[in-house]
Design a protein around this nucleic acid. Structure first.
Length: 280
DNA sequence: GGGGCTATTTACGGCTTTCT
DNA sequence: AGAAAGCCGTAAATAGCCCC
């Protein structure tokens, strides 16, 4: 999709990009050979330089370059080109406020493997593990997960591009939290942990700290179910957005939600769901 | 080369939203 | 509670273009 993108050029907005496509200019290569008469002389020169630079950056796998030039609602365009180097991320914390609360679990899922980094166990290994990727996928990570990680660990994600699915899905009319969006799109999978919310993540961590066996497993399992759901959601969003454009793009295959062989404590889940009403 | 018209981008304010 | 992006409407700045 990136090769079909012109929105990142200086002075080119949605309408001018549509003009490229309307005139039959669909890729960077075509644009470099085309006289581009609808641009002024100055803009045309600028565009040629930027197109050549775009080819170079894409060959280098420089996702960060394009992320800086694309509006947040258009970052979904990165997905197809960077899917092999993408990783989904979701954190659990002791509360909502970075600075006052801390990270308890960070989950990563790259389409093959899920891995959890747990406070007091191997959380310190997270920076090195995540640096192998080029694109991070989150839900509302722009305002929650990333600031938390930055506050606690420093700029460990500064070298990676970031796709926050919340903004794309909103443009598609899919509003609400992650779990609601999964329901509406039919991507949710029946699970014993279905009724749990972020608040329960906080309770599970407290139980774990006070010695409850099975609480940590349940928390990690909760995190895993959230984070593996991000990938099909990202692909769905990509396909829906791509389908709206007048381009010959083939949809990406929707990844299956993997079976998670992770243990959890069923009676603990039941207990948490029972007392959901009393808590706030 | 200047005046004015059009299309497009950019800037701004106020409101809404989501994360554990 | 806290931040920042989208959205919506409005307004201003910019570029291209045509005509004289």
């Amino acid at each position: 999709m990136l090769r079909h993108t012109f929105l990142h050029l200086r002075g080119v907005g949605p309408r001018t990009e549509a003009r490229f496509w309307r005139e039959g200019v669909f890729t960077w290569d075509e644009a470099l050979r085309h006289p581009l008469p609808w641009l002024g002389a100055w803009q045309r020169e600028q565009a040629r330089w930027e197109l050549a630079e775009s080819c170079r950056r894409l060959a280098l796998g420089d996702a960060l370059y394009f992320q800086g030039l694309l509006p947040a609602g258009e970052r979904w365009r990165l997905l197809a080109d960077f899917l092999p180097q993408a990783v989904c991320l979701d954190i659990e914390t002791t509360g909502l406020y970075w600075g006052a609360n801390v990270i308890t679990v960070i989950g990563l899922y790259d389409g093959c493997q899920y891995r959890a980094f747990v406070r007091g166990r191997d959380l310190h290994l997270f920076p090195e593990a995540v640096r192998r990727y080029r694109l991070v996928i989150t839900y509302n990570g722009q305002r929650f997960d990333l600031p938390f990680i930055e506050a606690e660990m420093g700029p460990v994600l500064s070298g990676l591009a970031h796709l926050d699915l919340m903004y794309v899905l909103r443009r598609l009319g899919l509003r609400g939290g992650l779990k609601r969006v999964e329901q509406v799109t039919g991507l949710a999978r029946p699970s014993a942990l279905q009724g749990l919310s972020g608040y329960h993540a906080l309770v599970l961590w407290r139980l774990h700290r006070s010695g409850h066996r099975g609480a940590l497993d349940t928390l990690v399992r909760y995190n895993a179910e959230d984070v593996v759901g991000l990938l099909p959601l990202a692909v769905l969003a990509y396909n829906l957005m791509a389908a709206e454009l007048p381009l010959p793009l083939s949809p990406l295959p929707l990844p299956e939600r993997p079976d998670l062989p992770l243990p959890y404590d069923p009676s603990l889940v039941e207990w948490l769901l029972e007392r959901e009403e009393e808590a706030v």
